[in-house]
Amino acid sequence: MKRLILATILSVAVAAPAMAGGDWVAPVKDPLTLKECGSCHMAFQPAFLSADAWRKMMSNLANHFGDNAEMAPDKVSAITQYLTANAGGYRRGVSDSKITDTAWFARKHRKVAPEVWTRKDVMSRSNCPACHKQAEQGLYDDD
């Protein structure tokens, strides 16, 4: 409940300016995707990768970046459907499987010192919420 209250206050506090043109990526709304793709890491917004990249990733979940993200086939197809339908076709979407390997990501983070990525509370580039507290709401311009 605490989290919900905080989230409510925060979203009210930031929603207005964010809507007014900040870097707002449409957050994940599909409950199945949130649940299945949001347990090991945050559920990344589909707009960050191209439809091809999502399809490639979803066809091999047993070998998912050194982890095993297998799930029932009906879930796989429902999630693939959602991700590809909302994929980024241009600018953000790059035909690579890792968001953090794209040139776009490197450009946005060129000012982040290398040692920051390995800090104990960050651990990985893919841990967006460690630095962007509202990453899951699609807000990345908070710092």
Binding site: C40, H41, D121, M123, S124, N127, P129
Partner: peptide, 8 residues
């Protein structure tokens, strides 16, 4: 806990 690879 914390996911050993993703930090989540």
């Amino acid at each position: 806990g914390r996911h050993a690879k993703t930090g989540r």
